[in-house]
């Protein structure tokens, strides 16, 4: 391991049709971090994630992966999209979904090879969805589909895992199970997770970034009620205490 950060963002600004979405973002995520990106809906969390993956082009400022350009290293990212926006109506099996993680790495020109299947089965075992391998994704519960999407990202054998609200629409027990899984995975890769639930993720993460158009707090700075106010406004600060533990 070297000292180059896994993700480094400097002076980033981004707008859609002159509407500023992100302003003056500076953040650094080191190797092995379990970082949380929290903030209200519409605060730009997903946009920032998509910028990190190069799905949107940066307009000003820089984003570097492992000290170099996004294009060069984005295959080292495993991406778990937001489940709520997902096309879960698609006719495809769990195994075929997980195998898509091998795109861009597989040695087979046509289809996937034996090694891809071995890796797919190995990661399905890790996320405990092997019994669902031949099930259609249309027949899965929210929690099961969420695990499938995480498994697909793991099948890429990534060094950075980016997760967008991986536990939205999931009951609390499954949420805890899935975070315990992330904790294990964090032993071998850097994780950046988006969550709107600041209380829950704080039990797991070692670095937090609070985003509401700009970074309101970052690193291990303690989350005070002032930060919460800056982040969510007055009206939610009391509800917040119910979520925290």
């Amino acid at each position: 391991m070297n000292n180059t950060p896994a993700i480094e963002i400097r002076d980033l600004n981004f707008s859609f049709n002159d509407l500023p979405i992100l302003e003056n973002i500076n953040m650094t995520i080191e190797f092995g971090d379990f970082a949380g990106l929290v903030g209200p809906n519409g605060g730009g969390k997903t946009t920032l994630l998509k910028l990190i993956m190069g799905l949107y082009k940066t307009q000003s400022g820089t984003i570097r992966l492992f000290g170099q350009s996004i294009k060069k290293h984005r295959k080292r990212i495993g991406y778990v999209p937001q489940y709520a926006n997902f096309n879960s109506d698609f006719p495809i099996s769990v195994l075929d979904t997980v195998l898509q993680g091998r795109l861009g790495i597989t040695r087979s020109f046509v289809g996937y090879g034996r090694k891809d299947r071995e890796i797919a089965h190995k990661v399905m075992q890790e996320t405990e969805i092997q019994h669902l391998a031949h099930r259609s994704i249309q027949a899965l519960s929210g929690g099961q589909l969420q695990r499938v999407l995480v498994t697909r990202a793991l099948a890429t054998e990534p060094e950075i895992l980016l997760l967008d609200e991986p536990t939205a629409n999931i009951d609390q027990r499954s949420e805890k199970d899935i975070f315990d899984l992330f904790k294990d995975i964090n032993q071998r890769m850097t994780i950046l997770i988006i969550s709107h639930d600041i209380g829950f993720v704080s039990d797991y993460i070692n670095r937090v970034f609070c985003l509401n158009k700009t970074l309101v707090c970052h690193d291990a700075s303690p989350v005070t009620s002032d930060t919460i106010h800056a982040l969510y406004g007055d009206h939610v600060s009391e509800i917040h205490h119910l979520h925290s533990r």
């Binding site: 190069g54 991406y79 495809i92 898509q100 795109l103 861009g104 289809g111 996937y112 890429t156």
Partner: peptide, 22 residues
């Protein structure tokens, strides 16, 4: 037959496919 996996990938989740270098 040749591009089955790419065609499935762009139909299913175009952003994931982009990040995978398709």
């Amino acid at each position: 037959v040749l591009f089955y996996k790419q065609l499935i990938a762009i139909s299913f989740d175009i952003e994931f496919a982009t990040v995978r270098g398709v």
